[in-house]
Design a protein around this nucleic acid. Sequence first.
DNA 1: GTTTAGCACTCTTGCTAGTTGAGTGCTAAT
DNA 2: ATTAGCACTCAACTAGCAAGAGTGCTAAAC
Lengths: 350, 350
Amino acid sequence: MYVTDSEQRRNKIFEYIVESYVTTASPVGSEFIAQKLRSSLSPATIRNIMVDLERAGFLHQPHTSAGRVPTERGMRYYVDSVMQARQLLPEQVRDLQARVLPQKAEDVDVFLARAAQILADATQEAAFVVAPTVRSGSVRQIELVPIGARRVLCVLVADDEVFASHVVEIEEPITRDETIALVRFFNTELVGLPFNDLLTSLERRLLAQTDSFYHVVKRSFEILEHALSTEPEERLYIEGTSHVLAQPEFRKQPELAERLLQAIEAEDAWLEQLRADLESGRSLVRIGSESGIPGFEPCSYLTVPLIVGGSVAGGIGILGPVRMDYPRMRSFVEAMALCVREAVGRMETS
Amino acid sequence: MYVTDSEQRRNKIFEYIVESYVTTASPVGSEFIAQKLRSSLSPATIRNIMVDLERAGFLHQPHTSAGRVPTERGMRYYVDSVMQARQLLPEQVRDLQARVLPQKAEDVDVFLARAAQILADATQEAAFVVAPTVRSGSVRQIELVPIGARRVLCVLVADDEVFASHVVEIEEPITRDETIALVRFFNTELVGLPFNDLLTSLERRLLAQTDSFYHVVKRSFEILEHALSTEPEERLYIEGTSHVLAQPEFRKQPELAERLLQAIEAEDAWLEQLRADLESGRSLVRIGSESGIPGFEPCSYLTVPLIVGGSVAGGIGILGPVRMDYPRMRSFVEAMALCVREAVGRMETS
DNA sequence: GTTTAGCACTCTTGCTAGTTGAGTGCTAAT
DNA sequence: ATTAGCACTCAACTAGCAAGAGTGCTAAAC
């Protein structure tokens, strides 16, 4: 792709504008940029270029005598075409690893929640993880542990190291032999099926009626239906929200903070969007209203999917103000994703 | 206890002051109170009484020409001696029950988190639960489910319907016979012991060396140590934080909001205090800095312990600004506690 | 043709002074 | 003991003014 000199220069100036806006949180004037360029261009020239950038929709002037502020569209352009990838320093990476890896990695859920805490602390923004649940994997093993006469603990193990257990109440008491038969059925006939299809596939067998296991299938259906109904599709953990609300944009407009917090608490809308984002299988950035979530307008987020065994199993990300340091955040979240993959990898091979 | 006429009148006026402060969030003047009293007393008299109340430390004047605001100490007095218990309307109780009871009550944790959501929604304040974990109960049953060669799912069931399961990695592969032996050991020798004493008591047996089960005890110790280390003492769920931050006191001073949010996120300090509060076994109110938690100064909370089988197993509460409607909140949280007890009761007897 | 110095112009921000009004405390009368 | 009356205080609002930041435009310089 051919880029003219003047385009290059324009991009450089735009980059400086974004970057000083990111650090100062206030409109950027031409003089300031001229200084950064060590007087290779005069403020007047920069002003001309600023007018161009404003016409292109990348900058916005709060009022006539103010500096310029990047628009949402400008930020998108910055993220896509202007900003330069940044590497973390080796010691930063080591620090992250040192805090993440030594953890007892026995429970994926707990492990990921901690990782989010560490990420939030390192970046001083909010960090989140979408933790996989068994529903996103397929059956590796299902066990039943009787508790009392009419209650059974149903243990679901997915092939991506995720597991869950739920107490199921059953109407007719279950015998020891029946339990054994059910468990055998689970671990011969159901292994490898995606948990999400489990119920429909059992239902099909039930309707067909030709099954020699009819009663076992029926009982299985009852138990698994209960067990899976308590298990959400995904689990969202978010840490460090206070860092975001401490940003000047929220200080000045507390109603924005309130709306954001409500949107985070409501969870549904965001989680749905995140699901779609992660399914793409690629890292991405959603800037301001791009996410389409009411209340998220002053915020952007980055997400990286976690890929386990070839398919997406949750993700990790950072939530901050639109005016956030994208290169820095991207390098952090990517380093963390590597860490997490490594740790999960170790869990698998062990 | 003898209460003079003038004391009674003073209390009435104080009650009105607190209550209008609660609704308006701004200092209360003498004229306003006079109107509420339907001119049975003139503003001047009320002013005299206000001076008394201020001398007693119950009221505070932001500045000479402002009305009066209850102090923290005043609020304490109000809660202890002035406010009148309020009953919820039957339909409010029914509404609460209708939203809490029909839930699948199979998992105590999930159930309590939902209850907190409902409470937050009903009160328009933040609501929290301290959910019990197995550590706070004693052993009813422990099971092992082998997963792969070197991993075992350890299922812990406490006698208060709480259960947990954790994957434990073990160095030496475990045999089928060994598993059976361990489970038998668990469910004959350990039943009834508090989970919290489990490790020390096993250690004692190990040190005594005289145990015929020596190897089983050793293996048990290893496995249970891992399983219990992942299990926290208590789990805290808080919902509806945004309701609190929407209050005018936080709107006007966003830094208070930030500090509060940080304190909630840090969790440790508050949880420790809550543990102490709940241990008393009684409902209580902590007003402002009484809680001793940095960041909680502008807030109060109410807690009610949940008693299961004679001992405290978690609790439920409401967090709001110091200027909150205590009688209303108390009636809500108490109604909810009843609901929850009923639901947990049903889980037990089933 | 691009760049830049110069300058008038605009609009926020901060400051000061004046006004308003809510609410008080005191005093003297009831 | 209560209360009407009144002077007093102080935050909150308003208006006006000055300062300053930053612009856009024009005309000269490169």
